[in-house]
Write a protein that binds this DNA or RNA. Structure first.
Length: 324
DNA sequence: AATTGAAACAACCGCCTTCGG
DNA sequence: GCCGAAGGCGGTTGTTTCAAT
């Protein structure tokens, strides 16, 4: 037995609102208000609409002082940094942007900002990867030359000492005597960590130790370290699945959002015991600033680092954030 | 000019929370 | 304390618009 519908679906009009419907709803609410009952409202004014639909229409479009489109850079920054901090809590984000609705911001994020942010991230990552690839190529080239020299040298020796077997380096021997110096972990392969290994986990000190121990094992695809989008092994309760289709960055960002969410909640002392999340101690967790800098412009984030909690805390009640 | 695919936007759906009886 | 109605919210889908071919 399902829940009773909020209205008679058969007698309710769906789809885009006509100007007549808009003006009916607007003028009624402006004159008499909603009467505290959205469900009854459409009958009162003779609209064949669901009460919820009327509410949405009013809140998102008919309400005075609503801005549409034309998001400024500053608003972009606010949305991005808040999203990083608290995730997809659009109503809270909207509360920080006068004249903007949660629906508007949500759509704007899904269609533009997400891509913009990821594009930025991807560019930086690409540049970094290229630099590393070049450095690696140089090292390999040097190795080859050295190998060649030594081989020639050994051949000379062996030809001089014809009674002895040729003294070549085996691959294993060569690797022992010529360890490849890897300066940056991002070009390593972390296949030895299972698929569920999250970016967060990778940033965890103990994981880094583990990574270091395994560093000499493999060197392949730099991107293989990125974990599964669906957050299999994360301790995050429900990370936003916003980056579907962005295989490379998806889990990095969603994990970061998740971690920031936890930090945010920890900041407010929200009890996560029933959510399965574990707040780490300050020594365990990666620093707040570090995490932010991985995702977004540090100066942007630092601008909001201090202001977000207070701003958000003043928003309506303590629905999301337990007041201190 | 027609077609197609992507992007943008509007609206709906269903779940969760709140509130009043 | 329980239950149901209503509100609120985020995710998703449907429609329209626009650009590329």
């Amino acid at each position: 037995m399902g829940r009773a519908p909020c209205c008679d679906k058969a007698n309710v009009k769906k789809g885009p609102w006509s100007p007549e419907e808009d003006s009916k709803l607007k003028s009624y609410i402006e004159q008499k208000g909603t009467g505290g009952n959205w469900i009854a409202l459409p009958q009162k004014i003779g609209l064949k609409r669901c009460g919820k639909s009327c509410r949405l229409r009013w809140l998102n479009y008919l309400r005075p002082n609503i801005k549409h489109g034309g998001f400024s850079e500053e608003e972009d920054d606010i949305i991005c940094s808040l999203y990083i901090s608290i995730g997809s809590r659009w109503s809270i984000i909207a509360a920080q942007l006068p004249g903007r609705t949660d629906n508007d911001i949500k759509n704007y994020w899904n269609t533009r900002l997400k891509k913009k942010l990821l594009g930025k991230q991807r560019k930086e990552q690409h540049a970094q990867a290229q630099a590393q690839a070049q450095a690696q190529a140089r090292r390999v080239s040097n190795m080859k030359q050295e190998m060649k020299r030594e081989t020639n040298h050994n051949l000379m020796i062996s030809s001089c000492m014809s009674t002895q077997a040729p003294n070549y380096w085996t691959a294993a021997e060569y690797s022992v005597h010529h360890p490849i110096q890897v300066s940056n972990s991002s070009i390593m392969n972390y296949d030895h960590l299972n698929n569920e290994t999250s970016f967060t986990n990778l940033l965890h000190p103990t994981t880094i130790v583990d990574m270091n121990m395994n560093m000499n094992m493999n060197m392949t695809n730099p991107l293989s370290m990125v974990s599964d989008t669906n957050n299999g092994g994360s301790n995050c309760d429900h990370p936003p699945q916003i980056f579907e289709g962005f295989e490379i960055f998806s889990s990095d960002l969603s994990e970061l959002v998740c971690v920031n969410q936890q930090q945010m909640e920890a900041f407010y002392g929200i009890d996560q015991s029933n959510g399965g999340s574990t707040i780490t101690t300050s020594t365990e967790s990666t620093s707040w600033g570090d995490m932010n800098s991985l995702v977004y412009s540090p100066n942007l984030v630092s601008d909001y680092e201090g202001s977000i909690p207070q701003d958000v805390a003043t928003f309506e009640d303590s629905r999301y954030f337990k007041m201190q």
